[in-house]
Write a protein that binds this DNA or RNA. Structure first.
Length: 258
DNA sequence: ATGACTTGCGCGGCAAGA
């Protein structure tokens, strides 16, 4: 089973890219982030024409997450822990997988910049809620994939120029500590289970020729429960997606569970 | 290197992204 995550930076601007990706990569499950539209504006027809079911948690103008799957899925919208949180950043589903199931979440973690504002405290609080929820999900002892745009650079090797990120919400010690807190629950960073290499990025800014100069960062992650990690056979970053015409600034990241 | 792009909203330039 192939499970992928992709921050598309507006699903309406990227519908053709998305359809092309579904046709070529044929993921069984695709987690989308940054839809930037309300549910009714989502391109259901184009997605369903490719043989996928779409579960959408949208928001006007910003944020927005979705799960696409070849099988029908039951979903829950929103990250537990704050009933006043109105930002559409989390959707979770249980997907049939052979004899069993895999639980998959599509996460758009807050950016958090600038750090001296409520934007950063919201990011840290969101991460605390994610840790609490992940703990609950791990207690189910089932295959679990927490996938998405974490807006976290976990380690220096995950940035082309780590010094440039020192005071940034994506890389501050408190941000990285909470990401480690997730891993310390027993979750596995799928990419780091297969490679220790530097230079593996999932995002290149539109500005300053970041792509051409390969000034990237790795911020899109798939975290696996032990039951999912046991099934992990492949991880891939679909880097060529960034070279397309009118690309998203993020590229898809894929895993294959045996 | 001072800024450098892209998007939504909505029709004028901001806010937001990372």
């Amino acid at each position: 089973m192939k499970i992928a995550t992709w921050n598309v930076n507006s699903v309406r601007q990227r519908t053709e890219h998305l359809v092309r990706y579904l046709r070529t990569a044929k993921p069984d499950v695709l987690c989308l982030q940054e839809l930037k539209c309300i549910d009714t504006a989502f391109p259901y027809a184009e997605i369903e024409a490719e043989g996928y079911n779409a579960a959408v948690h949208g928001q006007k103008g910003f944020n927005g997450v979705a799960l696409l799957a070849k099988t029908p899925i039951e979903v829950a919208r929103g990250l537990p822990g704050d009933p006043d949180d109105e930002q559409a950043r989390y959707i979770e589903a249980v997907v049939p997988n052979g004899e069993g199931v895999v639980r998959v979440a599509s996460i758009y973690l807050p950016n958090g910049n600038p750090p001296q504002t409520e934007k950063y405290s919201y990011k840290l609080a969101f991460m605390d809620r994610l840790i609490a929820h992940a703990k609950d999900l791990l207690a189910l002892e089932e295959p679990l994939v927490l996938a998405g745009d974490y807006n976290v650079i976990p380690m220096p090797r995950d940035a082309a120029d780590p010094a440039a990120w020192e005071d940034d919400a994506l890389y501050l010690p408190q941000t990285r500590a909470r990401f480690r807190g997730l891993l310390n629950l027993g979750l596995t960073d799928a990419l780091r289970a297969t490679s220790d290499a530097a230079g593996l990025y999932t995002f290149w800014d539109y500005q300053a020729g970041a792509w051409q100069r390969n000034k990237g960062i790795r911020i899109d992650h798939l975290l696996l429960s032990p039951q999912a990690a046991d099934q992990l056979s492949e991880v891939a970053i679909v880097k060529e997606s960034r070279a397309e015409d009118k690309p998203s600034d993020h590229v898809p990241v894929e895993i294959i569970l045996a």
